[in-house]
């Protein structure tokens, strides 16, 4: 018997008899994994699938990009037009993600907590931007906000067009990640906080928000990832003007069409790094908010 780190008594069962017949160490060195047969099979399938779909293509991408060496990277990135495309894409994606975090959470909130006429319809319609083929979304946006706009605005060939298209296709992400968490949220907890004297705002900030933070972060990550890779919905409305409305995906496509695979791959790998960075950053922020209270 010995005291473990938590003050609990750790028992070593049968340690005494074991020393005589066979050494205890040998017994423990058996199987180190806790996986059962079923789980082992599951893990195998998951890893194979993940490798086929994600790891191998990504590695191929990085290898292709690295084929040209640092020189090719620098050349691609120091191109002003490419740099402008990266700046536009990342900025617009960040703005759209920020908007989604706020608006998406509010929409999820009213869908769960309020009852109003047309709530079910709204609940269904939320998914439309996600379900619509992106080029169709682009057409819709062009006809609504393009030169022949029935509402008299012409946002074609402007940065607003990019923002609009991104906002349109990424709308459901935060709503759909936050909604189920909000539904599961125990109403008792808010009442407990109220009876302890917390105002509505304090309850939201210290009790509700920390519970929603992981879901909001997940939705934000999805929304950002989708935004930096979006192509179909914005090509029609944005006009793809170099230095003004050209996004990275369009730039990558034109590299490939020009036969410059190395440049396309290096630009793609830069976007990959940015996406990873943002996802990690969102996770860090989420952890802080979730444990703050």
């Amino acid at each position: 018997m010995s005291l473990g780190p938590g003050g609990a008594v750790l028992d070593e069962p049968g340690a005494q008899q074991v020393t005589e017949t066979r050494p205890a160490r040998k017994r423990r060195s058996g199987s180190r994994t806790t996986l059962g047969q079923g789980s082992a099979l599951g893990l195998g399938i998951a890893l194979t699938w993940f490798s086929l779909l994600v790891l191998i293509p990504l590695t191929a991408l990085v290898v292709t990009a690295a084929g040209g060496g640092w020189a090719a990277y620098l050349e691609t990135l120091s191109n002003d037009q490419t740099f402008a495309a990266i700046r536009l894409t990342v900025t617009q994606a960040a703005v759209v993600t920020a908007v989604n975090v706020v608006v998406g959470t509010i929409i999820a909130w009213i869908l769960v907590r309020d009852s109003f006429w047309g709530k079910r319809a709204l609940d269904v319609v939320i998914d439309v931007p996600f379900a619509l083929p992106t080029i169709v979304a682009g057409l819709v946006l062009l006809s609504l906000y393009g030169p022949q706009s029935p509402i008299g605005v012409n946002w074609a060939n402007s940065e607003t067009a990019v923002l609009l298209a991104l906002a349109f296709v990424t709308l459901p992400f935060v709503v759909r990640t936050v909604q189920p968490v909000l539904e599961e949220l125990d109403h008792d907890v808010e009442e407990a906080a109220a009876s302890l004297g917390a105002s509505r705002a304090t309850i939201l900030r210290r009790i509700v928000l920390p519970s929603l933070a992981p879901a909001i972060a997940a939705g934000a990550a999805l929304s950002f990832a989708r935004a930096i890779s979006e192509y179909g919905s914005l090509v029609l409305l944005s006009g793809n003007l170099p230095f003004r409305t050209e996004v990275v995906s369009v730039r990558v496509l034109s590299f490939i069409e020009g036969g410059n695979t190395a440049a396309a791959a290096s630009l793609a790998s830069v976007m990959l790094a940015i996406a990873l960075l943002v996802i990690v950053a969102l996770d860090l922020v989420q952890r802080r908010v979730a444990s703050r209270g």
């Binding site: 008792d188 907890v189 009442e191 407990a192 906080a193 519970s211 209270g293």
Partner: peptide, 10 residues
């Protein structure tokens, strides 16, 4: 409360 209503992140 019957179901404790703990603030589970604290």
């Amino acid at each position: 409360f019957q179901h404790y209503a703990v603030f589970k992140h604290l």
